[in-house]
Amino acid sequence: MFGGTILLVDDEKEIVDLLEIYLKNEGFTLLKASNGIEALEILNSQHVDLIILDVMMPQMDGIEACMKIREEKHMPIIMLSAKSQEMDKITGLSIGADDYVVKPFSPLEITARVKSQLRRYRQLNVSSIKNDNEIIIDDLVINIATHKVSIDHNEVRLTPREFAILQVLARNRGIVLSMEKIYENVWNEPFWESNNTIMVHIRKIREKIEKDPSNPLYIKTVWGIGYTIE
């Protein structure tokens, strides 16, 4: 038995009933919602380890719900959709989803993806945050209180903007963040399409924390989507 609490958000009863059988057989506790509004209400009152989120739903769809969830929550999100075009997948992943599954699907596949995402999330988060003020990722140490960064015990000097970008990526470890999302988190103002500020800052951060900036160990580029620290 794997264990954990799954929030299943879908307005198609047949899909909910089918996945409920398979997930409960694997030892998961299942919470259910039929739209994004209900999902947000559940998240505000109960602990959830992973979310399975349908895209097309009434009142609040999965895209809007995912964006709102990502403002505060970092658990894995698997999106379900009948849309199979590449741009639909890119949209889902760029707003914060960790996986994207096209309908129709096998319930065994969903169960396997749930286990994979939870296993990865738990491994990434075990001992990665030493306390409220320090994030440790391999040899990279980020001290939130002192704004100091070190690599292999050697201090690295970052500008305030560079530190803020690195902190956003580190706090969302394992999640791909778009340039728009990073910019709005750091600058607290709207992002414009032709803005290459994030790209420039990422290059400078890599030059300071990576042994080989052209083959980065920490900050990875996910082409067409954004950046992530794995």
Score class of each variant (00 low, 15 high):
residue 203 R to C: 00
residue 146 T to K: 06
residue 213 P to M: 09
residue 140 L to C: 07
residue 215 N to E: 13
residue 85 Q to G: 12
residue 105 F to E: 01
residue 142 I to F: 10
residue 70 R to K: 07
residue 226 G to C: 08
residue 36 G to H: 06
residue 184 E to K: 09
residue 64 E to I: 04
residue 177 L to D: 10
residue 51 I to V: 15
residue 87 M to W: 05
residue 125 N to V: 03
residue 103 K to E: 13
residue 129 I to C: 13
residue 127 S to Q: 13
residue 31 L to N: 04
residue 142 I to M: 12
residue 41 E to Y: 01
residue 166 L to C: 08
residue 119 R to W: 00
residue 215 N to M: 14
residue 55 V to S: 01
residue 39 A to H: 03
residue 111 T to V: 13
residue 104 P to M: 14
residue 121 Y to V: 09
residue 141 V to R: 06
residue 40 L to T: 03
residue 104 P to Q: 11
residue 100 Y to D: 03
residue 23 L to I: 10
residue 119 R to E: 08
residue 218 Y to F: 14
residue 158 L to M: 11
residue 85 Q to S: 14
residue 139 D to R: 12
residue 190 P to N: 07
residue 209 I to P: 02
residue 193 E to Y: 09
residue 107 P to K: 02
residue 188 N to Q: 14
residue 175 I to W: 01
residue 124 L to R: 00
residue 99 D to K: 00
residue 112 A to E: 15
residue 133 N to Q: 09
residue 13 K to Q: 14
residue 212 D to N: 15
residue 163 F to W: 10
residue 71 E to Q: 14
residue 100 Y to K: 01
residue 146 T to V: 05
residue 131 N to D: 13
residue 195 N to D: 15
residue 69 I to P: 02
residue 146 T to P: 04
residue 7 L to W: 00
residue 17 D to V: 05
residue 89 K to S: 07
residue 57 M to F: 01
residue 96 G to D: 00
residue 38 E to A: 06
residue 112 A to D: 11
residue 217 L to H: 09
residue 25 N to I: 10
residue 190 P to W: 07
residue 135 I to P: 02
residue 52 I to D: 00
residue 32 K to E: 07
residue 65 A to W: 03
residue 103 K to M: 14
residue 229 I to S: 11
residue 183 Y to Q: 07
residue 124 L to I: 03
residue 69 I to W: 08
residue 121 Y to S: 13
residue 178 S to T: 06
residue 126 V to E: 15
residue 94 S to Q: 08
residue 26 E to W: 11
residue 84 S to A: 15
residue 138 D to T: 02
residue 105 F to L: 08
residue 166 L to M: 10
residue 11 D to E: 07
residue 47 H to T: 10
residue 194 S to Y: 06
residue 175 I to F: 07
residue 82 A to E: 07
residue 50 L to W: 03
residue 162 E to S: 15
residue 178 S to Y: 04
residue 133 N to C: 11
residue 150 S to Y: 00
residue 110 I to M: 02
residue 7 L to A: 00
residue 7 L to I: 01
residue 160 P to K: 12
residue 111 T to A: 14
residue 125 N to W: 11
residue 21 I to H: 07
residue 103 K to I: 13
residue 10 D to S: 01
residue 62 G to T: 03
residue 32 K to Q: 07
residue 203 R to V: 00
residue 17 D to K: 12
residue 90 I to Y: 10
residue 70 R to T: 05
residue 17 D to S: 06
residue 6 I to C: 11
residue 205 I to G: 08
residue 35 N to S: 06
residue 79 M to S: 03
residue 18 L to C: 09
residue 136 I to N: 09
residue 206 R to A: 03
residue 195 N to M: 08
residue 2 F to Q: 15
residue 122 R to D: 05
residue 25 N to S: 12
residue 122 R to A: 06
residue 160 P to F: 15
residue 159 T to Y: 12
residue 66 C to G: 01
residue 155 E to I: 08
residue 155 E to Y: 09
residue 142 I to P: 01
residue 81 S to Y: 02
residue 226 G to M: 09
residue 58 P to Q: 04
residue 35 N to P: 06
residue 217 L to D: 11
residue 132 D to H: 04
residue 84 S to F: 12
residue 20 E to G: 15
residue 179 M to Q: 13
residue 134 E to S: 08
residue 162 E to I: 14
residue 90 I to A: 07
residue 30 L to Q: 05
residue 1 M to W: 02
residue 63 I to Q: 00
residue 48 V to S: 01
residue 40 L to I: 08
residue 146 T to H: 05
residue 162 E to P: 12
residue 4 G to R: 00
residue 131 N to R: 02
residue 47 H to G: 03
residue 202 I to V: 01
residue 28 F to I: 07
residue 32 K to C: 05
